Simulated scan of single mutants.
Amino acid sequence: MLKSIKGIFTWKRTLLLSLVSIVVLNIFSFYGLYTNKFYFFKVDNYIFPILSLVHLVFLYVMWFKIKERELSDPPMRNLEYGLYIVSLVYLFKIFETLFTLSSYGDYENHLIPGTFLPIGILMFILYTLLFGLTFLTFSYRKQLVGTYVFDDMNQHVDNWNS
């Protein structure tokens, strides 16, 4: 199954789709589903865009390492560990969006904008896609950049004694 997914989502498509998803979700992080308005002065709306910077840096490092045919290194490993934590935030946002969407029937006597379901479903799909693409990116990192084995790191460096 992973091979068929990798056939559809090549490493370039995975990085590009991740980037597009992050940008769109950063815009929607300021959007209120119930009110159909953007809220730029709420501090908690900036949490997702700030955390997504870790993902953006990891995507850049991944692209650079693949293009330059470089090996993995400790800073990349630390970024990936940070991205594991950010992926938990993505998982939280998936459930939060699903909970918000499921509350649609609770407010049937109130005026809910017509954009509630389409944008809510789009956000749910994008968060789920981003969560899956994150782990697919980890798989591509292992395949194309290499694993994080630093015990034999000195074997890859030219030394002056040879």
Score class of each variant (00 low, 15 high):
Leu91His: 05
Leu33Ser: 00
Ser72Cys: 09
Asp151Met: 03
Ile94Ser: 00
Val89Gly: 04
Tyr140Trp: 10
Ser52Pro: 00
Gly114Tyr: 03
Val145Ser: 01
Ile50Trp: 05
Ile47Glu: 02
Thr115Gln: 06
Asn159Ala: 15
Leu17Ala: 12
Phe48Lys: 07
Leu16Phe: 10
Thr35Ile: 12
Ile8Ala: 10
Ser52Met: 09
Glu70Met: 13
Leu59Glu: 01
Glu96Lys: 13
Leu16Ile: 11
Lys93Thr: 05
Phe124Gly: 05
Glu96His: 05
Leu111Ala: 10
Phe138Arg: 01
Phe58Val: 10
Gln143Arg: 15
Met1Trp: 09
Leu71Cys: 04
Leu98Gln: 03
Pro118Leu: 04
Tyr148Lys: 02
Gly114Met: 09
Ile5Asp: 02
Ile50Cys: 02
Pro74Trp: 14
Ile66Pro: 00
Asn78Met: 14
Leu71Glu: 09
Phe28Leu: 15
Ser139His: 10
Thr137Ala: 15
Pro75Asn: 12
Leu111Phe: 12
His156Ser: 10
His156Gly: 00
Thr14Val: 08
Phe40Ser: 03
Phe41Gln: 08
Phe99Asn: 12
Trp160Leu: 14
Leu91Met: 11
Tyr81Glu: 08
Ile121Asp: 03
Ile121Met: 09
Lys42Asn: 08
Thr134Pro: 04
Ile112Asn: 00
Phe124Val: 05
Ile5Arg: 08
Asn159Tyr: 13
Leu101Met: 02
Asp152Ser: 14
Tyr31Leu: 07
Asn109Glu: 12
Val149Asn: 13
Met1Ala: 15
Met1Gln: 09
Lys42His: 15
Gly120Cys: 08
Phe9Tyr: 12
His55Glu: 03
Leu59Val: 08
Leu88Lys: 13
Pro75Glu: 06
Tyr140Arg: 07
Pro49Leu: 12
Thr137Ser: 10
Leu83Gly: 07
Asp106Gln: 13
Phe150Ala: 06
Ile121Trp: 08
Phe40Ile: 09
Phe135Asn: 02
Asn36Asp: 15
Tyr84Ala: 04
Leu101Val: 10
Leu2Asp: 12
Leu59Thr: 02
Thr35Phe: 05
Leu144Arg: 11
Trp63Ala: 11
Ile50Phe: 11
Ser4Trp: 08
Tyr34Met: 07
Glu70Pro: 01
Lys37Gln: 14
Asp158Asn: 15
His55Leu: 09
Arg13Ala: 14
Leu91Val: 01
Phe64Arg: 15
Ile125Leu: 14
Pro75Trp: 01
Tyr104Ala: 11
Leu122Ala: 15
Pro74His: 06
Pro113Asp: 05
Asn161Thr: 15
Asp73Thr: 01
Tyr84His: 10
Asp151Lys: 14
Phe138Pro: 02
Phe116Lys: 07
Tyr107Trp: 08
Ile66Arg: 04
Thr97Cys: 03
Asn161Ile: 13
Leu51Asn: 03
Leu117His: 06
Gly82Pro: 00
Val149Ala: 05
Ile112Lys: 00
Ser139Asn: 04
Leu122Pro: 00
Ile85Phe: 14
Ile22Val: 15
Trp63Tyr: 14
Leu117Met: 13
Leu88Ser: 11
Phe92Glu: 04
Gly7Phe: 08
Leu83Lys: 03
Ile85Tyr: 06
